[in-house]
Amino acid sequence: MTDTQRHHRLRVRATGWTHPVLAGFEADLSLYRLEENALSKHAAQLHQLTGGYFKALTYAISTAAVIAIRSGSENITEKEIKAATAQLGPWQPAADQP
């Protein structure tokens, strides 16, 4: 894998800046009943389900928000996260990753 390919495969880690990233999503979501730290408390699960890839994380959170709006809950819980990430399929590391 070239440096350019590595650069384009942005990944978030389960520690470090993951929580600020999730807090940023929480601040930007326009859900009426979003609980405090709704995403941050599921950081490890989100990381596992998305493989730490930012694009997959963005998709999962956006999809979970749509599910929350359509259900009327206006909150993202483990239920919405699992429903959103089920559409991604199981994450598998690429062959060039340890």
Rank of each mutant, 00 (worst) to 15 (best):
N75R: 13
K82T: 08
D3N: 08
L34I: 00
N75F: 02
A23F: 10
E36S: 12
S30K: 15
S30W: 05
G52I: 05
W91I: 05
A83N: 06
A38Q: 05
V12F: 14
T63P: 00
A84W: 08
A68H: 01
D96A: 04
Y32Q: 15
L34F: 01
A64Q: 03
H7M: 14
E78Y: 06
G16I: 01
A84D: 06
A23R: 15
E36Y: 09
D3K: 09
D28R: 14
R6A: 00
I76C: 06
G89H: 07
K79H: 13
V66L: 10
P98D: 03
A38L: 09
D96W: 11
E78A: 11
Q97W: 10
S40D: 09
V21R: 08
Q87V: 06
D28K: 13
G89S: 06
T18S: 14
T18N: 09
A27R: 15
V66W: 05
S71C: 03
Q87S: 07
A56Y: 14
L88E: 07
A38W: 08
A60E: 02
S73P: 01
H8G: 10
L31H: 05
V12P: 03
T58I: 01
G51E: 06
Q48Y: 09
F25C: 12
S71G: 12
T77G: 03
W91G: 00
W91V: 10
Q5R: 10
E26T: 13
W91Q: 08
S71N: 02
K79A: 11
N75H: 11
